[in-house]
């Protein structure tokens, strides 16, 4: 089962894609993914119900978030009401280790994304802040990053013993599925996604198109 773990819709301030058009694009272009996770910036979208779209197009549509820390941006999978109220998702300078602690306490997973990018990636902040505690997984393939940025991410993951995921970081329709993550088990809910990530059974898929 292949999921794009990092996408944005028009719910994000810089997102330009409607979810229905993502679905239409995936099916029209035979993009080789089974679904995607909407990781809107600094928020969690409790309101939208994409179950009808998911059923119509035979896709899995899950929701997460992308928050901002002193180490750069971090994907959060398994967001619930209690986790949402545990810290301020809208903050642009959350302490990463606290985010990870809250995620661990609420059965969620925090994954630093595009860690090879300047400013918004984790590797750029290691010299200043040191290696953060609790990181287990980072995004090593990001569809919006340059090849050299992904190389920095992969090298950092290897040196620090992190596992890697892939996500397109799509903000427009035609960029979805550029990178993804393959799971050996079905992942159809946020809880199953967290379970699969915690089981450390997945493989990142580099840029495909």
């Amino acid at each position: 089962m292949i999921l794009d773990l990092h996408t944005h819709s028009i719910k994000s301030d810089d997102g330009r894609a409607k979810v229905q058009n993502y679905c239409q694009w995936i099916r029209t272009r035979d993009i080789p993914i089974d679904g995607f996770v909407l990781t809107e910036h600094r928020q969690f979208d409790f309101e939208s119900d994409y179950s009808g779209l998911a059923e119509t197009h035979g896709l899995v549509i899950l929701k997460g978030s992308e928050v901002e820390t002193e180490y750069g941006h971090v994907l959060v999978f398994g967001v619930t009401e209690p986790l949402y109220h545990a810290f301020d998702f809208t903050s642009i300078r959350l302490p990463l280790e606290e985010v990870i602690e809250h995620c661990n306490a609420h059965d969620a997973v925090a994954v630093p994304c595009h860690p090879g990018r300047p400013r918004v990636g984790m590797s750029a902040h290691l010299a200043e802040h040191g290696v953060p505690k609790g990181v287990r997984i980072v995004e090593i393939y990001n569809g919006g990053s340059r090849a050299d940025e992904d190389a920095v991410a992969a090298q950092m993951a290897e040196e620090l013993g992190y596992l890697g995921i892939g996500g397109s970081d799509s903000h427009i329709v035609s960029h979805i599925g550029r990178c993804a993550t393959e799971f050996p088990v079905p992942v159809t809910t946020e809880a199953e996604l967290v379970q699969a990530l915690r089981a450390e059974r997945f493989e990142p898929i580099p840029r495909q198109h």
Binding site: R16, A17, G144, R146, A147, I172, V173, S174, H175
Partner: peptide, 28 residues
């Protein structure tokens, strides 16, 4: 990436890439 026949409008994804295939600008 979107067609609204009632309004007569289309939405177009646009991407500017360099010779290395890196996305420099994207939008709609």
């Amino acid at each position: 990436t979107d067609i609204d026949e009632d309004e007569g409008t289309v939405e177009i994804d646009i991407t500017i890439t360099n010779e290395a295939g890196e996305t420099r600008v994207f939008g709609t």
